[in-house]
Structure formats: structure tokens, C-alpha cells
């Protein structure tokens, strides 16, 4: 049943402008990250380890992701759920044996796969463009992949939150408003101490995943709180399951 329901979710995405939203999400991060190419001297130091070209790219990406993801994930979730509100889809699914919480879980699987693909594409494209402009210094694979994995988790938790919000509150402006507020919180968190950023899940966790930061004299490696991000993922997953189970018991 779940396979057929997931296939239906992909079919429902047709004409929902999911592709433009995902393209904006990927292109936005890639463009903002690669803005580093235009800084004076960057292209001259692509072969110089002291120029820290990969660190600069990773640092730019760490700001680009919280700047674009919260609002675009809100848009993505809202579009997936609003069609159910508009089309009396919840009731139809229920009379076909799929309770509302199940529909939310299926949407999470289908659109979540798109979110994961988009996040990997962001990271991969920034790396590819870095290679293309001729960065020859050693690639910090561990930090890069660690950051990519962390933002996959944070993006999925945030997407799940917006799915629930859009499903619970029919007025989609609420979810989008939270998305805009999320951008503010996520960006502000990058300047907060770790303990404080941890108080604003999931938006503050973009800051916890940051592997590099600009300090006087250049970029310095940070110790990203991968365990905290993992804990966020587990807690988010458990909460999502619990809340969607509650949706299942809800009366029409």
C-alpha cells in the first residue's frame, strides 16, 4: 500500500511547481555559495592552501543554506498539503483506507526524497563548481560530507514540521509566515553561542552544523555539533510519528 501511496504523491506533484521551487532552492544556495568566487584574490589562490578556497566555499554555503531553506521548505510543504485541503483529499483518502496521519507520512517519504536530492545537489554542485574554477588544494571531504549530512537531517526535520503545520492549519499563510520567521532565526543563530542556538530547534541547528567560520585572519574550522543534529533527527522523527498517529485517530 505504501508504495502505491508514495507513487500517487509523486503523481500529485505534477503542475504543483515543485520543480521550480526545488530549482530555486538549489540554485539559490549554489549562487550564494559561489559568490565567494567574486571576492578579490579568490581565483588567484585556488592552488594555495593558505588561501583556504574550500573553507571559503563551505563557509558561504553555511550561510546560504539557512538563508534559503526555511522559506523554500515551507513553500514545498504548503503546496503538498494545501491540495488535500482544497480537494477534500483527506476525506477521500480516509474512505480509501488511508487515515490523515498516514497521508502525512507518505508525503514526507515522497517529498522528503526530493528534499534530500535537492540538498545533495546543492552540496555536490558547489563542490563541482569549486573544482571547475580550478581549486587544487586538498578537498576537506570529512567536513564537507559531515556538513552535508547534517543539513540533510535539519532540512528533513524542518520539512516535517512544516508538513504538520500545513496539515493542521488550513490557512497556508501561517506556515509561510513561520518559514519567513525561520529564515530570521536560522541566520541569527549563526551568530549565537552553541547553547543558545540549540534552544531554537530546528532552525538554530543550521548554525550547529556549521563546520567553518570567518574570523580575523581567515577561516577557522569549528567543531560542528553532529551529535546534537543527530539527536534532533531522532527526536523530530519520533515526534512526527506520534503526531501523525494522533492525526490518524482524528475524526473527520
Amino acid at each position: 500500500m505504501i508504495g502505491r501511496a508514495v507513487a500517487n504523491e509523486f503523481a500529485k506533484m505534477r503542475r504543483l511547481r515543485v520543480v521550480p521551487v526545488v530549482v530555486a532552492m538549489v540554485a539559490g544556495v549554489v549562487a550564494l555559495s559561489c559568490f565567494a568566487f567574486t571576492t578579490p584574490g579568490f581565483l588567484d589562490s585556488v592552488g594555495d592552501p593558505s588561501g583556504q578556497p574550500w573553507q571559503w566555499l563551505l563557509g558561504s554555503m553555511s550561510l546560504a543554506v539557512p538563508l534559503t531553506s526555511p522559506i523554500l521548505l515551507a513553500v514545498l510543504a504548503s503546496r503538498q498539503v494545501d491540495i488535500e485541503h482544497q480537494a477534500n483529499g483527506w476525506l477521500f483518502s480516509q474512505t480509501s483506507g488511508l487515515p490523515p496521519g498516514y497521508v502525512c507520512r507518505v508525503k514526507f517519504v515522497a517529498t522528503g526524497a526530493v528534499v534530500v536530492a535537492a540538498t545533495l545537489a546543492q552540496s555536490g554542485l558547489v563542490f563541482a563548481l569549486g573544482t571547475l574554477v580550478g581549486i587544487t588544494v586538498a578537498f576537506p571531504a570529512g567536513q564537507w560530507l559531515g556538513y552535508t549530512a547534517s543539513i540533510v537531517v535539519v532540512n528533513l526535520v524542518l520539512f516535517a514540521l512544516h508538513l504538520l503545520l500545513s496539515a493542521r492549519i488550513g490557512n497556508q499563510l501561517v506556515g509561510l509566515g513561520v518559514g519567513v520567521l525561520g529564515v530570521f532565526v536560522a541566520l541569527t543563530s549563526t551568530g549565537m553561542p552553541t547553547w543558545l542556538a540549540r534552544c531554537f530547534p530546528p532552525w538554530g541547528y543550521y548554525a550547529l552544523a556549521m563546520p567553518v567560520d570567518a574570523r580575523e585572519g581567515g577561516m577557522v574550522w569549528l567543531a560542528p555539533a553532529h551529535l546534537s543534529v543527530l539527536a534532533l533527527g531522532v527526536a523530530g522523527g519520533v515526534l512526527f510519528m506520534l503526531i501523525t498517529r494522533l492525526f490518524d485517530r482524528q475524526e473527520a
Binding site: K12, R14, L16, Q86, A87, N88, G89, F92, T95, A252
Partner: peptide
Amino acid sequence: LGHIGSLIESPPAYGHL
């Protein structure tokens, strides 16, 4: 429910499809 067809409230159809 596999043997019951129903139409409750408004007709269930996705307008964009």
C-alpha cells in the same frame, strides 16, 4: 470500505490535475 463508494461533503478531486 473496499466495498463502499462514497461522496461526503464536496467532491474529492485535485483541481490542478
